[in-house]
């Protein structure tokens, strides 16, 4: 096998191997780029209501009564008295803040975005451990893919012709933004 064939074979096979991970990083990359406009991992909903004053009732009855009045049956994780007359209940998928005097209740419900949650989980390296190595190997794979890609074609369409111009444009884009913003 000559050098050119080896280069093409490497480019092809690493390309196949990197395809899945590239899609994960690409989709999640766009999603997390826009965190100012949305939460890329969770769908958030706020519900306000009034469940009536609870001050006349004994404190131990507050939590079950709040859960009943807002119709929340999911597992209660914890309770935090956030102020003398305010209680915050943490339920799986819901945070319920209640003004015990007025009964004003704010529920912040969250549901992981199906598929995007998992993609972001990997992209933001929450698993750590073995995944860190996997992501490092993938990054090296991308570098090899980029370098071998430069030499797939020869001649007019290759690095000395059209390919060279496109490579120069690609390299100029980040340089332009560094000049613009740095």
């Amino acid at each position: 096998m000559n050098w050119s064939k080896l280069n093409r074979a490497l480019h092809r096979d690493i390309g196949y191997l990197c395809c899945g991970l590239t899609l994960i990083y690409a989709i999640s990359g766009v999603a997390v780029n826009h965190v100012d406009s949305w939460n890329p991992s969770y769908r958030l909903t706020r519900i306000t209501s009034n469940i009536g004053s609870l001050t006349q009732l004994p404190r131990q009855e507050h939590v079950p009564l709040i859960l009943e009045r807002v119709g929340e049956a999911r597992t209660l994780k914890n309770v935090f008295p956030s102020a003398p007359e305010e209680l915050t209940l943490f339920v799986e998928g819901n945070t319920i803040k209640v003004d015990l005097v007025t009964g004003e209740t704010v529920q912040d419900r969250y549901v992981p975005r199906r598929f995007l949650y998992e993609l972001n989980f990997l992209h933001l390296n929450h698993p750590k451990k073995l995944w860190t190595w996997c992501a490092d190997i993938y990054a090296v794979g991308l570098a090899v893919l980029a370098l071998t890609g430069l030499f797939v074609l020869r001649g007019r369409l290759g690095l000395v012709g059209r390919g060279g111009v496109l490579t120069a444009i690609g390299a100029a884009i980040p340089l332009f933004f560094l000049w613009l913003y740095l």
């Binding site: 939460n39 991992s41 969770y42 958030l44 994780k77 914890n78 935090f80 943490f90 339920v91 799986e92 998928g93 945070t95 969250y110 992981p112 933001l124 929450h126």
Partner: peptide, 14 residues
């Protein structure tokens, strides 16, 4: 930002 991202679902956890 981005170095650590705490998930919304961490609320109520110790």
């Amino acid at each position: 930002d981005g170095e650590i991202v705490f998930p919304v679902a961490a609320q109520g956890h110790l």
